[in-house]
Design a binder for these strands. Structure first.
Lengths: 351, 351
DNA sequence: TTGTATGCGTTATCAG
DNA sequence: CTGATAACGCATACAA
């Protein structure tokens, strides 16, 4: 990759090109047509006679031609790549969504460009700039921190799909899981088992998902005529350690409770550890319910009752919506409803 | 950062160009120099007078100029992007490595391009083609399935860094964690606690890491004068369910054991569940030791004794090696030695 | 030290 | 339907 073309004309065979690239031009020549025709066939831009099409197709597969995305991006518009802003590639939760996005985009010939927003709006804004400079054809934002306004502005130039909030604007499609209903289902599950004193570990304040789940918790309690006890609501930050600490605080407060609903599974893991350290057994002494249904929740001891989030599907759908947005200017996909997965971490309270 | 410059530069306000881009040309004009000079400053290709440099720098920050990677890639060589082949974006294990790669590359102005190999050589080969067509400046392969031969071939054209195996070739750097020593340490830990009948759950057959960990297990046993009992070696596939099944089989076999060493943490989670279902307590009845030290292992019940893998650092180092390879044609980084993390899942066997 | 000319591989805009 | 030809934004021999 050090040497580029030397001896400019093509008459003398270049001595030692290791990195010879098959260009569209070469295909055209081999097929006896013009470059434009090849391009048209590649992009379906215009009708081409069957005969030439066949010749070109053959030349393409014969020479093993692969279009150069750089040149494509420079010349035309499309780069066939979609920017994906995730909070942290490597998040146990979003991992599956990334896979879904990759799979769905791949089927359509697009490839994702993943970048990490690091949980703050400034980084996300930088990500958007970087992605735009790379000429992505659209941006998918997985539950970002950017303001609605910033997203709308971005959508004026580029198709945008965002998850984790509800937002409607031209060129923008939002895709939201029903966190409220999920929170309600989890809480109702505990109520139905006979629990009355149900503690709640919240997610990050200001995180829309977290707020909705809490609303669901409150709603289910009210519906059952149970007063909300603020002392049973402990603040968490969506990670294990915060769940452990919240539970620790709950226990120290000496406020009685027979069940804990954690706003996500990771915090539930931490909660379980805290309970264990205090000799409290799950579910015999305290029932524990999570939210997300991470793969690992099937293998906790005991397996965790939780609200299932179809994360992979979420990725699939987000990508699908993006493709629709690109092709038709508008999108519409159906998010699956939340499903509660009763497992062994919850049971009726001891009497 | 919502709207870019519109109109202004040109006399007639363009009617509806939403996406006006600030070009190098415009910077040159604003600074009163030629485009080449700007380019030279950007790339440090040649010496430039301080005066002009200052003028250009000002123009750049004033106009908010960002070089277009597409054009850069087309014209010169470099795209400042590095392909990263991971088995599955979303793997709980490699997630941290991806973060490390992203961080280290980011510091040097490079950006990673993640693709999933889906645990098979054919897909990985396709990934390499895709990445090369995108003109990446190098490829990092995280523990792939490609043959050494294929990697060597790839390295003839492009800098390659590969983890999870030991391989030396021009333009290629391999980065390996000492799985053998890690396996030995884990086993020795159990032996030191007094265990003699130590079961082992293997990783995928054919997976180099898995084989090395097994070798470490055998080595430690031999060293202690303990015969290796093939009936205590159960095959796993690195995921939870396989660990559960392997343990189930171990229990059914009625072969006595007082400890289990699992070739990775995920399988250890499955093992813990199987033990729990059979009323076997960890660590009272059976000690359990894993490998990898996933973040979640701090929060299992009880917290899992395991061999710590500095995954984030692995990513950092792989990226660092890649940068060295690009800049100096050779690389050399130091992998940290394995560290055993004793926690509460292991103790001396009941007498 | 600096500017000029040319090309990178593709798409888009024209004529025919 | 098809083929020239001009961009796209930048880097780099080459000339000055």
């Amino acid at each position: 990759m050090t040497d580029r073309n030397r001896g400019r004309g093509s008459t003398k065979p270049s001595t030692q090109r290791t990195d010879t690239e098959v260009t569209l031009q070469m295909v055209a020549q081999a097929a006896g047509v013009s470059a434009s025709t090849v391009s048209r066939i590649l992009n379906g831009t215009a009708a081409v006679s069957e005969a030439k099409k066949k010749a070109v197709d053959e030349a393409i597969s014969h020479l093993g031609f692969v279009p150069n995305p750089m040149a494509r991006g420079l010349a035309g518009g499309r780069t066939l790549s979609i920017g994906v802003i995730t909070q942290s590639i490597g998040s146990p939760f979003y991992g599956a969504a990334l896979c879904g996005i990759e799979d769905e985009l791949g089927r359509a010939g697009y490839s994702p460009l993943f970048v990490s927003g690091h949980w703050n709006a400034a980084d996300e804004a930088r990500c958007i700039d970087a992605l735009r400079s790379r000429r992505v054809d659209g941006i998918i934002v997985l539950t970002g921190r950017l303001s609605d306004r910033a997203l709308r502005a971005c959508a004026r130039n580029l198709p945008v799909v965002v998850t984790g909030r509800t937002l409607r604007a031209p060129g923008l499609y939002s895709l939201n899981f029903d966190d409220f209903e999920g929170g309600r289902m989890a809480t109702r599950h505990l109520i139905d088992l006979g629990h009355r004193r149900i503690a709640f570990i919240t997610g990050n304040p200001g995180h829309a998902d977290a707020a909705e789940r809490y609303r669901g918790y409150c709603s289910a309690l009210e519906e059952a005529g149970i007063a909300i006890d603020p002392r049973l609501v402990a603040p968490g930050e969506f990670h294990e350690e915060s769940g452990r600490r919240a539970t620790e605080a709950l226990i120290q407060s000496r406020r009685r409770f027979t069940a804990i609903f954690s706003a996500n599974d990771q915090m539930a893991y931490g909660a379980a550890l805290a309970l264990h350290r205090h000799g409290l057994r799950v579910p015999d002494d305290v029932s524990l319910v999570g939210f997300d249904d991470l793969p690992a929740s099937l293998y906790t001891i005991p397996p965790l009752s939780t609200v299932h989030q179809p994360v992979y599907d979420l990725g699939l759908l987000a990508a699908s919506a993006m493709l629709q947005l690109i092709r038709q200017g508008a999108a519409s996909v159906e998010m699956p409803a939340p499903v509660f997965m009763p497992r062994q971490s919850s049971r009726s309270p001891a009497t």
